[in-house]
Simulated assay, not measured.
Amino acid sequence: MYYGEKRVETPIRWAMVGGGKGSQIGYIHRSSALRDFNFQLVAGAFDIDAARGKAFGESLHVAADRCYPDYQTLFAEEAKRPDGIQAVSIATPNFTHFEIAKAALNAGLHVYCEKPMCFNTEEAAELEALVEKTGKIMFVSYGYAGHQMIEQGRKMIADGVLGKIRIVKMQFAHGYHNVAVEKNAASTAWRVDPKKSGPSYVLGDVGTHPLYLAEAMLPEEMKVKRLLCSRQSFVESRKPLEDNAMTLMEYEGGAVGYVWSSCVNAGAMFGHTIRIVGEKASIEWNAEFPNQLAYEVQGEPQHIMHRAMDYLYPEATADDRIGGGHPEGLFESWANIYSRFARAIELTEKGEPVDFWYPGVRAGAEGVKWVEKCVESADQGGVWVDY
């Protein structure tokens, strides 16, 4: 269990690009990064409107002269300071991620980027190469992976508790955009604009979240072999971007997978689940009940495992912040990912290897490739395409 002791010797000097006034995702980033004292928010370019961004930064107790009008000025001016930033989080609309991440890496900064980290595999390859060249750490914001029961599932699969994996059923299908809410919500409007969102809406916005959970839990040798995708725009004004998509996948080794990505699942609160079926047993995790993991063996009653219990793997209890029975949630999960970000930065700057898994640039590239292949399949009429 984590009792609030420090995890890095010195807090990482940290900045944000975006995440300003009215940004829900910005608040989640700050609350999670600052929770364990691994980071200090010392600078930022919080808003496209410089005056509004400065006022917002000052409300966060960031010094006025370190609230910058844009990310270019932020990186250039902080590089001149002996106490300049070491890392930056990018919490801006999709179409800006690639250029900002590229500039940050070139400025010698470690990067935590909202997903998708870019629009296509060519850009993803460029970022991967830049991470390799600079030796900097890049995280992609798959915050749900920080829930402890995901680690429990990962260890159960690795230990063969489920047997050979046969089926991976994933979904992130909520109903909050079942009508054209973007007409009155700027935070949604850019998500359905191809110029700002990229080649997809829900595939990239929600579908890649359970996809990464599967990537984190499944053996590395389980790679997607080919996929078939059908996508729809039930709200006509969203065309050519989809608000619903069904994706079938075949893995190397014979397993199959399914991802339902949707924002028009009317009545659904969240609809984010992953079920992994093996030859001996199955596990299922639901983001609305993140402190539990269902474990089902054929012919036996269903077992519900709970966070913070002694019967779990030590890796699954290492990040507990409070005893069992008390619910933990999204902020704790994101904080766990940010904690890994801080530790990875510290190890890297000491020249030591990072010996734990995390959603890095490779995971970001995989998400971009998956969306690209889904769009390719759907736009050809829903055909199988090689991965």
Rank of each mutant, 00 (worst) to 15 (best):
G53T: 09
Q148I: 14
A245M: 04
E372C: 04
D47W: 07
H29Y: 11
H306M: 12
L105C: 04
W357R: 15
G253I: 02
G207Y: 04
N184M: 12
H61P: 03
K136V: 07
F95K: 05
A266R: 12
D83E: 15
I28D: 10
H174W: 08
I48A: 10
M138C: 13
A124Y: 05
V131I: 09
G143M: 13
G53I: 11
G22C: 04
C118D: 03
G160T: 14
K369S: 10
D47S: 11
K133R: 15
K80L: 13
D320F: 01
H209M: 06
A79W: 02
E252V: 00
H326L: 14
A64K: 14
G271L: 02
I150G: 07
G143C: 15
V88M: 13
A185I: 13
P353D: 12
G254F: 00
N336C: 06
M149I: 13
L218G: 01
L162N: 08
S261D: 15
Y387L: 03
P314Q: 09
I28M: 11
P199A: 08
A189P: 00
T188N: 08
I100S: 11
D205G: 05
G163M: 08
A129Y: 00
S282G: 02
Y212T: 04
C118A: 07
S141D: 15
R154H: 11
D159Y: 03
Y142F: 15
V179W: 12
D83L: 10
F119H: 05
A378V: 08
G278C: 01
M246S: 08
I304K: 05
D320C: 05
